[in-house]
Amino acid sequence: MIQKIKASKSEKIIFFFLISLAIFSLSSFFLIKNKCLFVKNYNPEKLSFDKPNNIAILNVECGNVIIELYPNISPNAVERFKTLVRSKAYDDVAFHRVIKDSLVQAGDLEFGKKGNIDYGKIGTGQSGLGTINSEIDVPFNYERGSVGLARTQKYNTEDSQFFITLKDEPLYESEYTPIGKVIYGIEALEKIKYLNKSEYVLRPDFINSIKMLID
């Protein structure tokens, strides 16, 4: 006959503690794995904009990044960006150059497409639309969240690649063509994958999509 043994008070406490610990560990594992957990996702439908025609919505893993474009500052560059957005050229393109807390760069349409990345050439690709002239004469404050077109060491070589600054970069003024500023959701860009030892990212994060608020 099996004799029933009643658990003592201290045994009950230890048992409760172990169960709690297991639950905490499991939940922590899933919470930590979700890098987007504390990133607010902005819904552009619920926001109002002064110039909705110039609002672009960049969707990344952690949510929407809402960008106001400035055609009055750089008409040609903004037009190029809008053209590529409308043709969905930026969808599934890598954030190939990321410097922690400083800058994210994407838009290599030739060598940065998901499933067709060329790590040897990424950052040098072109859109096929040709280069455009730099538009750097209008004063522009390159503060955190500024969006600019990337170029080679030479001016007038802007094409499809763009960057977004994650900190103030006053020296970029009159160096890089500005196209706009992030007005909501920059936190989502801070979660873009970066490497500790290189600006160029192996197995990078991708742009899910970029859309104009009003097509």
Binding site: I99, L103, K167, E169, Y172, L195
Partner: peptide
Amino acid sequence: FLISSVQADTI
């Protein structure tokens, strides 16, 4: 070396 991350040197 391994823990130091790449720093942005804008200049």
